[in-house]
């Protein structure tokens, strides 16, 4: 008689804690072939609200770390992901119906993407900042800073279920932002499993908050939330993203529009789109 395996309860990840939805709701996640895979928590608007509060608290601490330190934390995520690849391969194969090789390749890409963005932490500022030669006796420097709390709609659908999320979350936190991300509704398991890695990676709780459930239900609350500074609509193609963008205008949030792709290609602009440029003037005189 074969041993009965122990199934995982997939929870939300808010403020560094694994929690069930306050609404008590779950929804059934199936494999590509339609078999039952797990019950995922179905986050509510109140969960989204709690996640924004956690993110707001976390961003100050995260942004105050040295860029070197943030880079090490992101690299640590890559290390842990590499070490636990089997779990992700299994979830990707199940959820996306792809081959083991393809799933492995996706995990490889996700690990490499964390490493790539880890290296940007102490460099993006040098590339995106400027020393400004003004016509007067002033020191003048422009530096990008994190915008604050970013709501992310990760690519939805079954493809790139791990990589799509990583490709939006990793660049958002490079500069010191904290994110509230809505994982792929149909294939959320790799995203939820990633939270177990984030929780053990020295990433302060609340820097990444992961919500599973209905993007259509939660997104309007997030884009309208006055304590959210920016919204990344990368995964919102199938939603009323024009409506979401219009709603975001209420407090003039920064908006990254959908691309129609299953992942966001690695780019410095992913980082800088979620930063603010601060220009500092100071008088300069010998006497």
């Amino acid at each position: 008689m074969s041993r009965l395996s122990v199934a995982k309860t997939y929870k939300l990840y808010i403020g560094g804690a694994f929690v069930r939805s306050e609404s008590g709701r779950v929804y059934e996640v199936t494999t590509k072939k339609g078999a039952f895979a797990a019950n995922a928590a179905k986050a509510s608007r109140k969960d989204a609200r709690d996640a924004v509060v956690a993110a707001r608290t976390a961003t100050a601490k995260w942004a105050a770390l040295t860029p070197y330190n943030r880079g090490q934390v992101l690299y640590r995520v890559a290390e842990l992901l590499e070490g636990r690849r089997a779990q992700f391969v299994q979830e990707i194969v199940g959820g996306e119906g792809v081959s083991v090789a393809a799933a492995n390749a996706q995990v490889d890409a996700a690990v490499d993407l964390w490493v790539w963005y880890a290296g940007w932490c102490d460099k993006y500022l040098q590339v995106a900042g400027t020393a400004n030669p003004v016509a007067g006796p002033y020191f003048n420097l422009s530096v990008p800073e994190p915008t604050g709390v970013v709501a992310v709609i990760a690519p939805q659908g079954a493809a790139d279920s791990l990589l799509g999320l990583v490709s939006t979350v990793a660049p958002a936190i490079v500069s010191g932002n904290a994110v509230v991300v809505i994982a792929s509704e149909s294939a959320p398991l790799p995203a939820v499993s990633l939270t177990e890695i984030l929780a053990t990676s020295d990433l302060p709780g609340g820097v990444v908050n992961v919500l599973s459930g209905s993007a259509a239900e939660m997104a309007p609350w997030l884009v309208a939330h006055a304590d959210v500074n920016a919204v990344d609509l990368t995964g919102a193609d199938e939603l009323d993203w024009a409506g979401l963008e219009a709603e975001a205008a209420g407090t003039l949030k920064r908006v990254v529009r959908p691309t129609g792709r299953t992942l966001a290609p690695p780019a410095l602009s992913r980082i800088t789109a979620l930063t603010e440029t601060k220009t500092v003037w100071h008088t300069k005189a010998l006497i």
Binding site: Y138, N140, E276, V280
Partner: peptide
């Protein structure tokens, strides 16, 4: 400070080279 332009020991200075 959460502000796009910060003037230290000066104020209301503008320059085309300065964002």
């Amino acid at each position: 400070l959460r502000a796009g332009v910060v003037w230290a020991n000066t104020f209301n200075k503008f320059d085309p080279a300065s964002p």
